[in-house]
Design a protein around this nucleic acid. Structure first.
Lengths: 257, 257
DNA sequence: GTTGATTCTTTATGCCGTAAAGTAAGAGGT
DNA sequence: ACCTCTTACTTTACGGCATAAAGAATCAAC
């Protein structure tokens, strides 16, 4: 499933995101659930089953039917928006600039990376139409604040904020979805990878001759953290090295005119 | 829907990707379709309807039922893999290095960006478990070849290749999915955006005070290409500026030890 | 006590991917 | 010529999904 933010009534979605649900003294049975409880349950289910979780599963976890959720939330898309924004609330809203912007951005990126690791389904929520929730804003504001301290003009900052976001997201996807997919089929990613590349080499024996540069790139690896499995190690190494290059680019931009 | 590559029999998938289907002289009725035709139809349907296209729709476009496709292709996941790899075949396999690596990478990135723009659904195919098709390899090889000319060591190159990939993908998502979602609901992204931000400002009037840096960033814009709609302009500007910073970072890495 | 709003369940609709079974076509052997 | 076995494709059916519609139960306000 792919979730485009807020296909329903925009006002309803945004009110839920920014104001939560209002519960005055009303007639009828006391509500046994709450938007908050549903969002929490949704996150728990999605953490286990990925973005393909079902409304039934969320209802079940709360001891209700799927339809009960629709009393609190307009639909699955809106629920995912709320889950997304709640997840962003896990992140710090500001970073100390005592040692300058570079370590601050690095910490921001690592926090983000870890948050994606805890909630891989977040990576499937479309970036194109931002959820526009308060915590999503806060996370971007915190990155923008760090980078604004470089004194770069807005035009350049937008590109940089985007680049860092895309990079962290992409790097996190590489590892997080691999873990998720492994869980879905019951295979660890290691096994999956080895099985695949074995078949590939069998069917296309001169693969390495056809793509010599890629082949060479696959060489000279060193474990960054030997306790991690192979693919995670790889992803972590690439994440750190890629981020370093990106930050060097920002430094160059700061130094220039 | 999110597609994890090749959940079925890996051998069958990889054979389809690398060898195509074999059609000797066999008993039974002559095949009226082919894997190629199905992949083309799939791409056409996905270009129109996005990743949530249905096997029924692909079959219909070919004048068959959905089940007819299963004679040629093991399932929807495998079809998507084939569609993905076919799409990658649209891209050049090598770039001239006459003017050095920088313009070559820039051209690679722009070609990729445009390809994503033509086929936004490609952005939903999981990167985590690469499709492992020949054209996907070729595309990465072409980028890696350009960058290998910098003489940087493999460890660093992997991070850089990743970073560029993530960046282009992320930047393309911002614009391409906005278009797709706009088409799905019948709204142009412009309208969607304006409607949303109006409601947002109404519900949270001091938004700009709460996120002052983001607010400031939204200022000073200039149209890059006035013929493009607002959001596309924005995305294009951020793409170019972000890429420039990334390339500056690579340049710094090349200059250093 | 009655009314009407509200929570939650039940049932039903229309999608989806695809399994299973059936029908028709055609090549090879006799 | 006929038979047989494989293949292409359709039909039907199943279980899953989000969610619309209708009904049951609950409680505040009058």
């Amino acid at each position: 499933m792919v979730v485009y933010a807020g296909q329903g009534d925009p006002r309803r979605s945004i009110e839920l995101l920014w104001r939560g649900s209002v519960t005055e003294n009303r007639p009828g049975p006391k509500p046994g659930l709450s938007v908050d409880a549903i969002v929490d349950a949704g996150i728990a289910v999605a953490d286990e089953q990925g973005m393909a979780f079902s409304m039934r599963a969320v209802g079940e976890r709360l001891g209700r039917t799927a339809m009960a959720l629709y009393t609190y939330v307009p639909g699955k898309n809106e629920l995912v928006d709320l889950m997304y924004d709640r997840t962003m609330a896990e992140l710090p809203t500001s970073y100390p600039l005592d040692d300058g912007w570079r370590p601050a951005v690095t910490r921001w990126a690592h926090d983000m990376w870890e948050c994606y690791g805890r909630h891989p389904w977040v990576l499937q929520v479309s970036q194109a139409r931002p959820v526009l929730g308060p915590h999503e804003f806060a996370v971007t504001e915190s990155l923008a604040t760090i980078l604004a301290s470089t004194g770069l003009p807005g035009r350049q900052l937008r590109g940089i904020v985007g680049a860092i976001n895309y990079f962290v997201r992409g790097a996190a996807q590489t590892i997080a979805e691999a873990r998720a997919a492994g869980g879905a089929t019951g295979e660890a990613d290691e096994e999956w990878w080895y099985a695949r590349s074995a078949v590939l080499l069998e069917i296309e024996p001169d693969l390495e001759k056809k793509f010599p540069v890629l082949h060479r790139l696959e060489q000279d690896r060193e474990p960054v953290d030997p306790s991690l499995p192979y693919l995670e190690n790889d992803a972590l190494e690439n994440f750190r090295n890629g981020l370093r290059v990106l930050l060097d680019g920002i430094e160059a931009a700061v130094a220039k005119p």
